[in-house]
Simulated assay, not measured.
Amino acid sequence: MKKAIFIIFLLSAGQIFSQSDFKFFFKLSRPIKTWVIFHPFKAKKSLRISLETNKVADSVAKTNLLDKDAAGGQVDAFRHAYWMARLRQEMGKSAARSLGKAHEKENYLTYKKRKLEDGVVPDEISSEMDLFNNDQGLKLTRKRSKTSRNSLVYRIVNAIKSGKMKIIKKDKKGNFLTCNGKTISAEELKGKWKNNKCLVVSSEF
């Protein structure tokens, strides 16, 4: 069954993917590969939007619009919300949401391999934050919406500042805190998918 689906993917995608694209495909994680197989005509578009999202988030991080924190902070929330909003604009809500979920499955595999994502090892609370912010991003636009990218940026920034998204609680030095405000040591976090990090509203930083 899986082999048959993959052959269909190759036949259907052959007209829109180059040889270099196929090499890139084989480097993807299993969850993302599965998404590509079921969305072959949206895969290339999703890659373009993903690259666009990283550039826009990096640009926002260099301004004073948000907290400059790309690993659990407002910029992290922005990146996920913008990614989902742009994906929904161009390919619809269902495909966008399923790609977001595939990405979080990928993060769990990254954790299992003890690899880094945005400079830190992924964990459960980060995944919860991402999924929540993904859903908020999906609410900010519609498929084929004519909302400009600049308007979308400010729409998301305003949503973050008004507390409609989630970030991870930290102190001014960037140390993770429990919901009671206790500093969590690096040793307490090391190698743990579940930990005592705390999600707070995105206006709290």
Rank of each mutant, 00 (worst) to 15 (best):
L87W: 11
N134S: 12
F205W: 15
G92K: 02
S151N: 08
L138E: 07
T63D: 10
K164M: 12
K44Q: 09
I167G: 06
A13N: 05
V121Q: 11
S18T: 00
N64I: 00
M91E: 00
R149I: 10
S46C: 09
S20I: 00
I8F: 13
P40S: 06
S126F: 14
K143P: 05
L65Y: 08
Y154C: 03
K169C: 09
K101M: 15
G100T: 03
E128T: 11
A61W: 10
N134Y: 15
K115Y: 00
K173M: 13
V36R: 00
L51H: 08
I49S: 11
L99C: 08
V157W: 04
F26P: 06
V60K: 04
D130K: 07
F132E: 08
P40F: 12
N134K: 11
E128G: 05
F24I: 01
L138R: 08
T63I: 00
E106T: 12
S46I: 01
K113V: 03
S148A: 06
A61I: 00
A77N: 04
I5T: 09
F24G: 03
I37E: 00
F38Y: 11
S18I: 00
G100H: 14
L51Q: 11
K182L: 13
I184V: 09
D171V: 15
W83P: 02
R155L: 10
S203Q: 15
M91N: 01
N180R: 03
M91G: 02
N54Q: 14
S151W: 01
N54R: 12
L10S: 08
A77D: 04
Q19A: 00
N133E: 12
E128Y: 13
V157A: 05
S162D: 15
G163E: 14
A4T: 06
L66Q: 01
K190V: 10
S151I: 05
K182W: 05
A96T: 05
E117I: 07
N54S: 13
L87N: 09
A43H: 07
K146I: 05
S59V: 00
R88Q: 10
S12G: 04
K161S: 05
K23V: 03
F9D: 01
G163Y: 15
